[in-house]
Amino acid sequence: MEHNHEFEGGHEHRHDHDHGPEHSKYEEALAKYNIRLRDEDVKAKTALLIEKHVAENNTPDVKKFLFHCIDLTTLKCTDSDESVMKFTGKVNEFVDKYPDLDNVAAICVYPNMAEVVNDTLEADHVNIACVSGGFPSSQTFTEVKVAETAMALHTGADEIDIVIPVGKFLSGDYEGMCDEIEELKAVCGEHHLKVILETGALGSASNIKKASILSMYSGADFIKTSTGKENPAATPEAALVMCEAIKEYYMTTGRKVGFKPAGGINTVHDALVYYTIVKEVLGEEWLTNELFRLGTSRLANLLLSEIVGQETKFF
Rank of each mutant, 00 (worst) to 15 (best):
F141Y: 15
K145C: 13
K145H: 15
E148L: 02
A150D: 15
M151Q: 14
H154C: 07
H154P: 00
A157P: 02
D158R: 07
I160L: 08
D161L: 09
I162M: 13
V166Y: 10
G167I: 00
S171M: 12
D173H: 14
D173W: 12
Y174W: 08
C178H: 08
D179E: 14
D179C: 06
E180M: 04
I181G: 15
I181H: 15
E182Y: 07
E182C: 10
E182N: 08
L184E: 12
L184M: 14
L184A: 13
K185P: 03
G189M: 09
G189E: 15
G189D: 15
E190R: 15
H191F: 04
H192D: 12
H192N: 11
L193H: 09
L193T: 02
V195E: 13
L197W: 07
T199Y: 11
L202K: 03
G203C: 08
N207Q: 02
I208A: 05
I213H: 03
I213N: 02
I213G: 01
Y217D: 09
S218W: 06
G219F: 09
A220G: 10
A220R: 03
D221N: 14
F222A: 07
F222R: 02
I223M: 06
I223Q: 05
T225M: 05
S226K: 02
T227V: 05
G228T: 07
G228N: 13
K229Y: 15
E230W: 10
E230I: 08
E230K: 12
N231D: 11
N231E: 14
A233E: 09
A233I: 01
A234L: 02
A234R: 00
P236D: 13
P236R: 11
E237L: 01
A238S: 10
A239D: 03
L240Q: 00
V241F: 04
V241Q: 08
C243D: 12
E244Q: 11
A245C: 05
A245H: 00
I246G: 04
K247H: 14
K247I: 03
Y250Q: 08
M251S: 11
M251L: 14
M251R: 14
T252S: 07
T253Q: 09
